[in-house]
Amino acid sequence: MLIHADYTRRATVVPGQHRWSASPQGGVERMMLDRFGGEQARATSLVRYARGAHFPAHQHPGGEEILVLSGTFSADGQHYRAGSYLRNPPGSRHQPSSSDGALIFVKLWQMTADEHTALRIDTGDPACWQHHGDTDVCRLFRNKNEQVSLQRLAAGATLALDNAELLVLDGGLLEGTQHYPRHSWLRLPPGNTFLLRAGEHGATVYLKTGHLAYLANLAAPC
């Protein structure tokens, strides 16, 4: 299955375009943002758990990155509230569920093979944030291929981006007259600079930069 699978091209999905589809597990739905492969896919998705939904234990050969957007996401006896950021390295195994329901942002099969350490960050902890001018930054992960952060922009603050991917978590962004509200997803390829501006209520975004050229050169998951 190919959905926005060319990482050299711009891709945008706004909430009015969300199309939810059932996953192989009852009570779990997916909104596919990009996808390259079958059920074992390199993919970026919003995943919605109904109350009591769960997956059987399974492995992630290519790793898994998760940001909990709402509700409580659980795995292997640990419970992660909204704002939790998780990285499960290649080859890791877990048994996810949600007793109360949850919405999560998930990236699969997009890590390098040398990433070995699980990561857990509570972005609701004020100590995780640093102030930089009109933007507050919560740094989540960095290696040679990617930099990941949450950024909280004051009204009117700007982001000049290329080779970047972002999800609007709160507030909204503007690009000229185009408005990107909460849960809008944008992938901005290398080679051009895209100027985005926080709306009148500011904006909080998940931002990943530097990774698209690396992903464009990867083979499809087996």
Rank of each mutant, 00 (worst) to 15 (best):
H54N: 11
P24I: 15
G191Q: 01
H211L: 13
A198R: 03
R152V: 05
R9I: 00
Q95R: 15
G71C: 06
D34C: 05
V205E: 05
M32C: 10
L186G: 08
R51N: 15
R139N: 11
S84F: 15
P190G: 04
L140G: 01
D114S: 12
L103M: 13
V68L: 09
I104N: 03
G71F: 04
L218P: 03
S23C: 06
V13K: 00
E146Q: 11
D162R: 07
G37T: 05
H201C: 12
Y80R: 02
P96T: 11
H211F: 08
G171N: 10
G191W: 06
G91E: 09
T193D: 11
K144F: 14
V28Y: 05
C222K: 12
P126H: 14
Y180C: 01
F194V: 08
Q78F: 13
S74H: 02
L195C: 12
F194K: 00
G101Y: 10
V28Q: 07
H18L: 08
A75G: 11
A154S: 15
M111I: 01
R10C: 09
M1E: 11
I66A: 05
F194E: 03
S98T: 09
G172R: 10
G156K: 07
P126F: 15
S184H: 01
Y7P: 02
S84V: 07
T72I: 13
A118P: 14
L2C: 04
S92T: 10
G171T: 11
T112A: 14
S70R: 10
A5W: 00
H18N: 02
P189V: 05
T135G: 01
L67A: 04
C138M: 09
L173Q: 02
L167C: 04
D114G: 12
L161W: 00
F105V: 08
H60M: 08
L69Q: 05
L196T: 03
L153T: 08
L159F: 01
Q17H: 13
P61E: 01
H132K: 07
N192A: 15
R187E: 08
L46I: 06
P126C: 13
A53V: 00
H60S: 08
H58N: 10
D122H: 12
R197V: 05
D34S: 09
A82K: 03
Q59R: 15
H79C: 09
G63H: 00
V137C: 07
V168L: 05
R152K: 15
L103W: 09
S97D: 13
M32E: 12
H116V: 12
A155M: 08
R152D: 11
S99E: 15
S99H: 14
P189G: 09
L119K: 05
G156Q: 08
